[in-house]
Nucleic acid binder design. Structure first.
Lengths: 151, 151
DNA sequence: CAATGTATGTCAGAATACTGACATGAGTCA
DNA sequence: TGACTCATGTCAGTATTCTGACATACATTG
């Protein structure tokens, strides 16, 4: 467990730290959602739909950071289990707007409480200013990374 | 694509932003590593070994944020392809210290250049102070999240 | 010394996400 | 109008990671 400074120290890399924080957050969320029989992607999908009803499969995929193929199988399962509904045919184009059912909304409510506790715990040791700094820093990173490849 | 503020705005959630940044970073890294025939986990493993030779399978798994089972299959592939070596038997306990081969080191060098360019791009739009703020903020989040479950 | 707890390496099966590919609908432009 | 580009939904197969389980090795504790 000793640290021999051969080359770059991973612990000084913002990229590594970013991955570590994201991984810790995901693990904490999964631990909270597991008792509810929900995965993080599952929850993300429902939360997105609650905030923006009528999102399409592709839009949900982008919002949950998975491929549209992955989101598609998830949506089929959610539809089969009665958490969401999609029209059988598209009214315009091929886009099928998705909406939460009452059951989906109830399921989401419990999950939201659990997830919010995780986020609050994560922010617990930070001042308001530190949170604001982190916010702008993360936005800056995202912007820089997206600049290069596409979009 | 319009934003109706139904409930919590995901764009104001630090957790969501964290996931977005991490996802963008991973995507950018994968885009750079793909031409080299390498995945992010693959690269992480090699980088960890370069910095701390002799790490065990479990230690590598924790460092790369995957399970030790996942790291095990990766190590078997890396060993088969001659990038790393592990002793046939443990000298103490069950721990098998892993080391890079010259071939593994050469492979890592190319990858490091690619990955470093991504990290530099990510930090491009930030001042030194902003980077320091982000660093402490991320560390704070990690600490808070780890406090609750284990360790 | 024996019992317990913790950590490791590994195998097997299941869950999840991915890449590749195709057809369809909408917008653009000559 | 017709050719082209782009985005979407979806199917199929592959790849990766995970969970569960087991045997083993060390440390601790009575």
């Amino acid at each position: 467990m000793s640290q021999d400074g051969v080359g770059v120290d991973l612990k000084t890399s913002l990229g590594y730290l970013l991955k570590e924080a994201s991984s810790a957050l995901r693990a904490a969320m999964e631990a909270e959602l597991r008792p509810l029989g929900m995965t993080v992607t599952h929850y993300s999908c429902l939360e997105l739909l609650a905030q923006r009803p009528g999102l399409s499969n592709s839009e949900l995929a982008r919002g949950a950071f998975v491929t549209r193929q992955s989101m598609n199988v998830l949506l089929q399962a959610l539809e089969r289990d009665g958490f969401v509904t999609r029209p059988a045919e598209a009214s315009v184009g091929k886009v099928l707007p998705t909406r939460l059912t009452p059951r989906g909304r109830r399921s989401l409510e419990k999950a939201t409480v659990a997830v919010r506790s995780v986020e609050l715990r994560m922010l617990g040791g930070m001042t308001q200013d530190e949170q604001a700094d982190a916010f702008t820093a993360l936005q800056s990173m995202i912007r820089s990374l997206q600049k290069h490849d596409g979009v």
